[in-house]
C-alpha cells in the first residue's frame, strides 16, 4: 500500500507560501493513498504554469510537457497503456487559453484521463496577466484598464463538449477536493475538475476569504449529478453563490474500448517481433 511519505520527492517546493497548489498536491496524494493505487501505476502529466511543478513533487510517473498540451500527451499515454491511471494537471491559461481546443476533443472522445485544472483566474508564473477565466474589469499588468473580455465558463464548456464527469473543487477545502479526486479517478471516462485556487500574489480579488463567503456544496443541496439540465443550471451560477462538487456524471463507452488492437491488452506490454507482412503484400501484387 502506498503511503503519503512514499509519494514525496526530495525536490524543493518553489510555490509561494499559502499558494492553493499545496492543497491540490496534498489532495492528489491523499486520493492515491486512499484509493490504494500503486505509485508505479499512476502517471501525472503537467503543463506550463505554476502548477507544472507538480510532477517534481509527487513520486509517480510523470511527464512535464508543453504549454497547453497536457491532454493530447495524456491521451497518447492512456491509449498505449490502459492500465495506467492518467492524471492531467493544467492551469487556467494552459487549459482554457492555449490548450482550449484539446479540452472539447478529449471530452467528446471520453478518453479515460482525469483533468485537474488549477484555476486561479490569473497568469501567475509569467507575473500577472489576465486569464481566460479572469472577471471583466480585472486589472493586471497586461490589462491596466481592466480585462475587456467575458470569462470562459469551463464547466459549461466541458458539459457542451460531452464530458462524462464535470466537477468543481476549492483549494480551501482539501477534504472535499480529495473526495472529488477519488470520485473522478473511480469514474470510467474523462473527468474535469476545475479547482478554484487562490493566487495570493497576483489575484487580490478572488482570495480564500472571497471564495469562503460564496462556495456551497452541491451534494448538500440535493443536486442530481445525473441530470444534464440541472448541471447546466448549476454551471452558470457565479457571484453571490458558487457551487462546488460534482455537477454531472454519466457512463459512456471509453475511447480506448473502440480500438480492436487494444482488446489484446495494453500496447506497452505487447512484445515486439518482426511481423509477417505476406498478407498485406499480397494485396499489392
Amino acid at each position: 500500500m502506498t503511503t503519503m511519505e512514499e509519494l514525496s520527492t526530495p525536490a524543493r517546493i518553489t510555490w509561494c507560501p499559502g499558494c492553493g497548489n499545496y492543497a491540490i498536491l496534498t489532495a492528489v496524494k491523499r486520493a492515491i493513498v486512499e484509493l490504494g493505487l500503486r505509485r508505479e501505476e499512476v502517471v501525472a502529466v503537467t503543463g506550463i504554469g505554476c502548477h507544472g511543478r507538480m510532477t517534481n513533487y509527487i513520486r509517480v510517473n510523470g511527464i512535464h510537457v508543453l504549454h497547453g498540451r497536457v491532454l493530447p500527451v495524456a491521451t497518447g499515454i492512456k491509449l498505449a497503456n490502459q492500465r495506467l491511471t492518467v492524471l492531467g494537471f493544467a492551469g487556467d491559461g494552459d487549459a482554457y487559453s492555449i490548450g482550449m481546443g484539446h479540452l472539447s476533443h478529449t471530452a467528446r472522445r471520453n478518453v479515460d484521463v482525469k483533468y485537474i485544472v488549477h484555476d486561479n483566474l490569473v497568469y501567475a508564473l509569467t507575473t500577472g496577466q489576465t486569464s481566460p477565466t479572469s472577471e471583466p474589469g480585472f486589472r493586471t499588468r497586461s490589462t491596466p484598464r481592466g480585462a475587456y473580455e467575458q470569462p470562459i465558463n469551463p464547466l459549461l464548456q466541458a458539459l457542451a463538449s460531452g464530458a462524462s464527469f464535470v466537477a468543481r473543487g476549492f483549494a480551501g477545502d482539501v477534504r472535499h477536493l480529495t473526495m472529488l479526486l477519488k470520485e473522478a479517478i473511480r469514474h470510467r471516462g474523462f473527468a474535469l475538475i476545475d479547482v478554484l485556487q487562490p493566487c495570493i500574489v497576483w489575484n487580490r480579488v478572488n482570495t480564500y476569504e472571497w471564495y469562503r463567503e460564496r462556495v456551497y456544496k452541491l451534494e448538500e443541496e440535493g443536486h442530481d449529478p445525473h441530470s444534464l439540465e440541472e448541471a447546466y443550471r448549476r454551471a452558470v451560477e457565479w457571484g453571490e453563490r458558487i457551487p462546488i462538487g460534482i455537477l454531472y456524471r454519466e457512463e459512456r463507452p471509453l475511447y480506448h474500448e473502440h480500438f480492436p488492437p487494444l482488446r489484446r491488452g495494453s500496447l506497452a506490454f505487447q512484445p515486439l517481433k518482426t511481423p509477417d507482412l505476406t498478407p498485406l503484400l499480397e494485396e499489392l501484387s
Partner: peptide, 21 residues
C-alpha cells in the same frame, strides 16, 4: 486527432508509455 499539434503530442505520450509511435 484535432490538429497536428495534438497528433505529435499524442505520439509523444504513446512513446513515453513505451510503444513505437
Amino acid at each position: 486527432p484535432e490538429s497536428e499539434i495534438a497528433a505529435i503530442n499524442m505520439v509523444i505520450g504513446a512513446a513515453y508509455a513505451g510503444v513505437r509511435a
